[in-house]
Design a protein around this nucleic acid. Structure first.
Lengths: 187, 187
DNA sequence: GTCTATATCACGATAGAC
DNA sequence: GTCTATCGTGATATAGAC
């Protein structure tokens, strides 16, 4: 792995752990093993490096979701697979956590990957919910778009509650609760 | 309002907007109109002041929830009222946002109010869900504890999605989705 | 209680040698 | 490409006058 790559990966980790405001160039240099000059050779500064890191995290998140939502099985099975995927609950979501970072949200360039990722995810999940309904797997009652937003919110909120409790099991409980509510609408 | 009070309120606002890491003593002094000496006269430092602010936000959040969950109406009506309450979606939850702050979570004193607030809220909501079930308002299917965690997660995650989209309507959609799923279990 | 002065360190970046 | 030196600013506090 070359230095540029190590800088991006170290920044990704630090943004995940400490957010944008809490991540200093110095910390990035120490984690990656790069010197001052090296970092500023590959990137114009902290925002430039953060953009590379955020874009990659967003792409990775979307790729995993798409793999599960367009994988094998019925629509309802794919939704269940996506929701039930094992996640590092106490670490939280590397993209979702950026929404709490005022400096990220204030910068249109840094903000765009975050916005697009969740916009895509809600739309994609709504489409699979609509598919489940069309196939007679789900009742006609709940609106697919609203249901999709609620389900994604359960995951994002599940991270918050798990961290608050310092207990990954709380995340699993949130997912269980969502699946339980969804089950009432299965045909 | 005396100076001590203004310091706490200013800190509450700043923690809400920028988090603990993003809030400096200087910013607190400027917003409150207090000088350096004044702030350090009333509080030992940033952590001490943050504790006062966090404890107050936690208490306020709990008070509002308790008012709705123990208010008038059937159990299901109270749950719906709690979930549907108007909230400043783009501002987010002043307590939930602290879970993303590594320095808050690393300090047991600062962490405790956050942990206790959500622990209490999940338990309290589960009790009202159990009440709704006992009263025949809700089907026996979903587990109250898991459902409660999922519902609180929808609110916390709704903030994340609304901020990601820069659109408060997304928060409302998440709540709508949750209410739609819950409706399927109403008797 | 509040003020100003001062101290120490970290942040985020630039300059220029190698 | 990477290194060290340096810079100006802000973070977080202490000291002591008033």
């Amino acid at each position: 792995m070359d230095m540029r790559e190590r800088l991006i990966e170290s920044t990704r980790e630090l943004l995940w752990e400490r957010g944008y405001v809490g991540t200093s160039p110095k910390a990035i240099q120490q984690r990656s093993g790069a010197g001052q000059g090296s970092m500023y050779h590959h990137f114009r500064g902290k925002p430039d490096l953060a953009l590379a890191a955020i874009a990659r995290s967003a792409e990775e998140m979307r790729g995993r979701a798409e793999a599960e939502l367009s994988g094998p099985g019925t629509a309802l099975q794919r939704i269940t697979a996506y929701l039930s995927r094992e996640r590092d609950a106490l670490r939280g979501c590397p993209v979702g956590r950026l929404t709490q970072d005022p400096d990220v949200m204030a910068d249109p360039e840094l903000r765009r990957p975050v916005e697009e990722t969740f916009s895509w995810l809600r739309t994609r999940l709504a489409a699979v919910l609509a598919e489940a309904r069309a196939d007679g797997e789900l009742a006609a009652g709940p609106d697919p778009a609203a249901t999709a937003t609620a389900l994604v919110a359960v995951l994002q909120g599940g991270y918050v509650l798990a961290r608050a409790a310092a207990d990954a099991e709380v995340y699993a409980q949130a997912v269980d609760g969502a699946l339980g509510l969804l089950a009432g609408h299965a045909q």
